[in-house]
Amino acid sequence: MSELTLTVMRLGFLAVLWLFVIVAVQVIRSDLFGTRVTQRGAQRAGRREAAGRPQQAARQAPPPQRQQSGGGRQRRNAPSKLVVTEGTLTGTTVALQAQTISLGRAHDSTIVLDDDYASSRHARIYPDRDGQWIVEDLGSTNGTYLDRTRLTTPTPIPLGAPIRIGKTVIELRK
């Protein structure tokens, strides 16, 4: 075997060996946990909440509802999740699955609000027959606000509009 071939193989082998080491280190780099979290601050705050009060909303299993034949789920602009953007539960998300979401201080609410200004059964959010999500105030003491207007009747929720309950603000997002 010619000297040249062997030299090329020798150097080539070292290069391949080092390439393996570099690839392995790249894998470690991309393997750091939590890289897929999008809302950093919100997520962290939410996690702290969940750790601090395990019995709170994050762990709460929701009350079931009659399954609607959820026509709206297929629509393009239908929201897919409810996000808490302000308040102690910041970062919590709830998937919207054609079920009523109840909000309040009561333990069996879907989202248990730890908020002095919230009533025990404060409001609920549910899809109507067309799949449009509706928010309804359940006779709360301090009221539920969509944008800045206090709700008096069940109202459809536009995508991204803030719903304020006491210090908590929630939004529907895609």
Binding site: R36, A50, Q60, P62
Partner: peptide, 17 residues
Amino acid sequence: SSTTNSPTHHTSTIGAI
């Protein structure tokens, strides 16, 4: 209504990442 738990419902994404 609002009495039993439904295990399939996905409440929160905390820790799910």
